[in-house]
Design a protein around this nucleic acid. Structure first.
Lengths: 103, 103
DNA sequence: TTTATATTTCGCAAAATTACGAAATGTTTT
DNA sequence: AAAACATTTCGTAATTTTGCGAAATATAAA
């Protein structure tokens, strides 16, 4: 009798790296990360709207995804929200890519 | 009068890195890449079907995407096709992530 | 040359991603 | 308190991704 093979279970590091990669897989999000990852850089949502020429709600959605992936964090600086890299998780991402590429 | 701001044009390196990241953003594809990136490792489609418990056509689709992204290459070794890392483009990916993380 | 094997392509349906305007939320300024 | 400003949430439509069985392609073995 044919045995329907069971689906592979992936380990946590691999799943984490797929999530991070998904976060990096849109030009707008990657642009933001590159911009913020520079030494001590932060920015406001409004700045990026002008810089990128994208709808406010669209940008907000992408920022939310980056936040959800843990790569950035927002700090309220009323009436703005200041976004910066989440250094802890950025270092984790760095580690995972390093492992992938044997750096 | 309101000026509808122009959409940002992204540079080639950034777009290339988004494409590579997209290729890495699925557990099955990342698993394959991790497996193949080990020293001199190659594999056949059939091996992976058993190992991953996924439909043949599904796997084929993912291999196609990895090929399209330039990260792997297939060599005919009848009746099989032997898949390996495309070392040249793998090195490029490595370089781009290195730049992103200032490694 | 028929049969078996390895893989891909096709067609399709379900799910996820993307973009954006309108409306909502919350804060500051007047 | 009202008006102005920054940002997010909601609703929605278009597009892309994903998964898989059936059929097609191509080669090897009998």
């Amino acid at each position: 009798m044919e045995v329907k093979t069971k689906k592979k279970r992936y380990d946590d590091d691999l799943l984490e790296l797929t999530n991070i990669s998904k976060a990096l897989s849109h030009p707008l999000r990657l642009y933001i990360l590159k911009r913020l990852s520079k030494m001590n850089a932060c920015c406001y949502s409004g700045d990026l709207v002008d810089e990128l020429g994208v709808g406010r709600s669209t940008l907000s959605q992408h920022l939310k995804e980056l936040k959800y992936a843990g790569l950035i964090q927002g700090e309220i600086e009323a009436p703005y929200i200041k976004y910066c890299i989440n250094r802890e998780n950025w270092a984790l991402a760095q580690k995972l890519y390093k492992e992938l590429f044997n750096l």
